[in-house]
Design a protein around this nucleic acid. Sequence first.
RNA 1: CGGGGUGUAGCGCAGCGGCAGCGCGCUUGGUUUGGGACCAAGAGGUCGCCAGUUCAAUCCUGGCCACCCCGACCA
Length: 566
Amino acid sequence: MRLSRLFGKTLRDDPADADTASHRLLIRAGLISQLSAGIYSYLPLAVRSLRKIETIIREEMDAAGGQEILMPVLQPEELWEQSGRASSMGPTLFRLQDRRSRRLVLGPTHEEVATTLARQNVHSYRDLPLNLYQIQTKLRDEARPRAGLIRVREFAMKDAYSFHVDEQDLDTTYQRMVQAYSNIFERCGLDVTVVEADSGAIGGKDSQEFMFLSDSGEDDVVICRSCGYAANVEKAQVRIPTVEDEPLSELDPVSTPGVKTIPDLAEFLGIPESKTLKAVFYSCDGEIVFVTIRGDLEVNEVKLKNGLKCADLRLATDDEVRGAGLVAGYASPIGLEGVRRLADRSIETGANYVVGANISDTHYRNANYPRDFTVDEVLDLTRAQPGHGCTRCGHELRFSRGIEVGHVFKLLTSYSETFDATFLDTDGTQKPMVMGCYGIGVGRVLGAAIESNYDDRGIAFPRSIAPADVQLVALNLDREGVRETAETVYDALKAAGLETIYDDREESAGVKFADADLLGLPLRITVSPRNLREGNVELKLRLDDASEAQLAPVDAASDKAVQLLG
RNA sequence: CGGGGUGUAGCGCAGCGGCAGCGCGCUUGGUUUGGGACCAAGAGGUCGCCAGUUCAAUCCUGGCCACCCCGACCA
């Protein structure tokens, strides 16, 4: 590819509204162009990278027993009504109607279609296991697209769906897929951490996410350096700081005028927050739920949502709180009736807590569970926070942000039962297929790979996913021998199987070097009058200092390039 | 959806109630040439949109829209 003809120009200035490194560099280097929020065009250089990522994915999926298919983006809404996700996905689902007013959705993922496809085409245990994958456009009306390719509304995803006779067989494929994913990310130059993840309200048992740890990420993960436990904060179990047991004292009202928050309460009474109980109110599918948790802890809403088997969970409004007979700031589980009550397991240890009295300006001292109040259910509802320990080994957990580049789920039979995707087993009975699903965001991998490989001069692509291997830079094209030599080297590089971008533009050396650094191909080869006097060209790896550039005779350039790229 | 911010040339930005500006980029000619060269001449604008105020609005007022950031949400 000749740079003079390449579609997509570099920018000298950083784009003003990109502040994530990969977003800034993707635009500055001329890889992507924004059409709308979370909607991008991919220019030739980006497409070359994406194709390489896709090739790596296909190789690993095929090796893991996958078969590539292609399912439609346009899907009948009815399928989504059937699975229940028309409502549970809410506004994220793009909807439209055809000319006969039939309702359709633009697929945000393909479990519904994949399960239907299996129902139509799998009838016997002899057809299983089956592992289907596709690389297909997904459309999601995300509430907040951000950070270039990290969260977009239209994107290519590799999604795979596996079908099995039983859970044991699923486990085998699941492990193969986890290994395939690790291979894929390693080959893409991404160091990922596999974390335990929430599988969402619908279906599933085990679920793991592949996280590239980065401040640009939007997921919070905890990692135990001691035993290796790693989990999304949504899912993370933690060992909370313990509080001392003590003999139970008598319940005792205390006047607390104007003291409505836990920090105020602790300060007012001169006690730690961990000696108080906090009340939080949620609306779960319209029903008010009262949650009690120790004052120094926060409610993990994902855990709560799962525990309640609730489709739509949100904090209750002030009106809803009042309507339930609760006094905000002084709400209490003591004597509370007619409201669904849950508690975090933190209330089961410790003693003599301060808790609201459900009377303005009043709290109780020495509240104890279950002596003074009961709840409908005690669950683990604790959100992991800094200072919390690992449940396995007690070591303090480390917190990090992460970009979720892959996610695998054991769906089990939730979809196959809904869509009646059954097979005839050896014992002559119809059974629902046991399913797994596996996703990778292709563009997000590109974004994350750049987050992982850049410096102040630009991108430094891993060779495996670089738009090309070599940037051939010719300086002073009109000087004797330069153009001819560059053309010769260009041909030799191509003949040696190296993908080359040839900078044949009439630009100054500074511009060409700066653009080469910005685009970040692994190897730069410079043809210039200076080196040509000795019959040489210069080779420099993107990550080396300028002083480490090497010279090679013109006719040895391609061999040397192959050697340097190793 | 809540909070914050920004909309002026391809990009980055300034400006201001009275004819639309700068730097970079772009075009043409010339001089240069190993780290974002120089000279000269050019092209390029519905100042986000709609109302209102005014003799006059890019500027003031109101509404709307778009984009960015934080949060909520996110198979």
